[in-house]
């Protein structure tokens, strides 16, 4: 019966009540943990993972109302279903629980049939919410998912100061023509995993993936103190990871892969673009074009990372930068100085 293995936390200051509730949910096939007041409960909720909370109201230290308030304020706990089990007197207290976000209210002693039905329904809601969140994260990255959960979805953008990063694999088409398609997909999966990791680590989000190319944004939707520094650090980590990956490829007798990265910093418009049915978090602006052109130019001059003047200005450490004078980039009328970030091969 039920989702066996679902983990429930029972909060009640009375030992007899804790015992009875634990036994009741265990008989229904769930796993029960207990806490004797709100304070202990909040600690356990933050340290462990639970699927549902059975909460008493009258408790010393921190009562049920305070627990409901704390859960509501915590983005990581907000979706946890809470069923209040209490025998507080007065309908206004029940109303207060529901207003504070409780899923349901069961008066004590809890009727086993009602308990069973409410638990099943609460856990099903939790399962659907989790599923939705996983889907959202798979297609949107956790930052965008958080932004969507916090402010809701609305088409439209805003001006932000951000760094845009473009990256792709050199000679990928030739590489993929010389190997079976499954191997190409596997290579792409590993490549994306590594790149996502490096970008994520420095607070960036991947906004676009096309074949072997990707675009990442640093500074939106969540603002970063120093987006340029984050983007350059991410780029260096990306190269370090590829270098590590190549060691494995050499051992497996496969050709090494090379990547090129372009970074530009400045004002961009970031936001959701598309239709009400299908939209993506993206950014637009001449800095986006510039970053793409810089990435393309890494192939021309045979370097790994190229950054624009605004990115360079934002870096407090300018060592390891090599100026490339007066480069004429496609789509930009005036030639400009760009900078190659020297990547120090480890070992």
């Amino acid at each position: 019966m039920g989702e066996s293995g679902s983990r429930l936390l029972i909060v009640d200051d009375n030992k007899v009540n804790r015992l009875l509730l634990s036994r009741s949910v265990e008989l229904l096939g769930y796993h029960a943990s207990v806490a004797e007041n709100g304070k202990i409960a909040m600690q356990r909720l933050r340290d462990e993972t639970f699927d549902l909370l059975l909460l008493d109201i009258e408790m010393p230290e921190m009562d049920g109302f305070e627990v409901l308030e704390a859960i509501k304020l915590d983005p990581a706990l907000r979706d946890l279903p809470v069923i209040v089990t209490s025998s507080v007197e007065g309908i206004d207290n029940v109303v207060r629980c529901i207003e504070l976000g409780a899923e349901d209210y069961l008066s004590k002693p809890v009727n086993p049939v009602l308990l069973k039905a409410r638990l099943a329904s609460g856990l099903e809601k939790k399962r659907l919410r989790d599923e939705q969140r996983v889907l959202l994260e798979r297609f949107a990255t956790s930052e965008v998912a958080l932004d969507l959960q916090e402010s809701g979805f609305a088409l439209g953008g805003r001006q932000v100061n951000a760094s845009v990063l473009f990256c792709d694999i050199r000679g990928f088409t030739a590489l993929s023509e010389n190997q079976p398609p499954e191997e190409t997909i596997e290579l792409l999966n590993i490549y994306y995993t590594l790149m996502f990791e490096a970008i994520d680590c420095h607070g960036g989000i991947v906004t676009l993936m096309i074949g072997d190319g990707l675009m990442a944004l640093f500074g939106a939707p969540q603002p970063l103190e120093d987006p340029a520094r984050c983007a350059v650090s991410a780029a260096q980590d990306m190269l370090a990871m590829i270098e590590q990956f190549n060691l494995d490829r050499v051992v497996a007798d496969k050709p090494e892969i090379r990547i090129g990265i372009g970074i530009a910093t400045g004002e961009v418009v970031a936001g959701y673009a598309g239709t009400q049915q299908r939209a993506t978090y993206t950014c637009i602006g001449s800095k986006v074009n510039l970053a793409a052109r810089l990435e393309a130019h890494t192939k021309v001059i045979g370097c790994e990372i190229l950054i624009d003047d605004d990115t360079r200005s934002a870096l407090d450490e300018k060592v390891g930068l090599k100026t490339i004078h007066q480069v004429q980039l496609k789509g930009f009328s005036d030639p400009r100085d760009v900078y190659s970030v020297v990547f120090h091969q480890s070992q």
Binding site: V16, N17, K108, P109
Partner: peptide, 14 residues
């Protein structure tokens, strides 16, 4: 006082 009475009440009902 209220909490203690409440606690006993819920147990008595069981």
């Amino acid at each position: 006082l209220r909490r203690a009475a409440h606690s006993l009440k819920s147990n008595a009902n069981i």
